[in-house]
């Protein structure tokens, strides 16, 4: 058994950096495309609704691990040279956009119909109706679920290890193999995940309580 010293800890922190970066990229990319998906999913056009429903179905109905494989090797098959970082970022963006799109579709539909009617009666167009009236209310409604998904996404980044990405979990595995102290190493890794995810989840439920109060 080897010791776990400064170097090993530094290596884990390097992994943590990638975990956080991946989660941020997935969340921002997924957020941008997710809004688009949610808007198409709630549009008047049947084609848009059907196509996005299919998109959401595919990404919710298959494992993230498989999605990572398909994007990683699929992009290479198309003859485009990309590094693992780009491929994984694309996969997480696609994955997150499907889930966030579905969460936000639900919250757009949860905004009372009277709001749309009032906006229509005032003559507001689609863009203003969405941007000024519906989306601010929908995003507020969706906050708890959105934060819940972010927590899932952070933990889901560990799957990026499969395509050779050294994020927190993979870094832990490497250290564990070097030091033969799996329990200790993965205990530390787990504690790091927990120290990020728990406050987030906690903030989410706090927000939920505050919103419930404000809605009264």
């Amino acid at each position: 058994m080897g010791p776990i010293g400064e170097n090993e800890f530094f290596f884990l922190m390097q992994g943590l950096k990638w975990t956080v970066l991946l989660a941020i990229v997935g969340f921002i990319g997924g957020g941008i495309f997710g809004i688009l998906i949610a808007l198409l999913r709630t549009s008047k056009k049947k084609v848009a609704r059907t196509v996005t429903a299919g998109y959401i179905g595919v990404f919710q109905g298959t494992p993230l691990l498989m999605q990572l494989f398909v994007v990683y090797y699929g992009v290479a098959l198309l003859g485009i040279e990309v590094n693992a970082w780009i491929a994984v970022a694309i996969a997480f963006t696609l994955h997150a956009s499907a889930f966030l799109g579905e969460i936000w579709r639900g919250s757009i539909e949860a905004v009372p119909k009277g709001q749309t009617e009032a906006a229509n009666a005032l003559g507001l167009h689609y863009v203003s109706r969405m941007k000024d009236v519906i989306l601010p209310q929908a995003l507020k409604i969706s906050m708890p679920a959105t934060i819940g998904f972010l927590v899932q996404l952070i933990k889901g980044t560990s799957l990026a290890a499969i395509v050779g990405f050294i994020e927190l979990t993979r870094a832990g595995q490497i250290i564990s193999n070097q030091t033969y102290r799996p329990l200790l190493v993965f205990g530390i890794v787990g504690a790091i995940y927990f120290s990020i995810c728990w406050p987030l989840a906690h903030a989410g439920s706090g927000l939920e309580k505050r919103m419930a109060k404000a809605a009264r």
């Binding site: 009277g114 009032a118 009666a121 005032l122 003559g123 000024d132 009236v133 209310q137």
Partner: peptide, 17 residues
């Protein structure tokens, strides 16, 4: 037409945010 016609609803429908 909507520019010329104002409407008031039973349930007010003010924008709460």
């Amino acid at each position: 037409i909507r520019r010329e016609v104002g409407m008031v609803f039973q349930s007010f429908n003010l924008f709460p945010h």
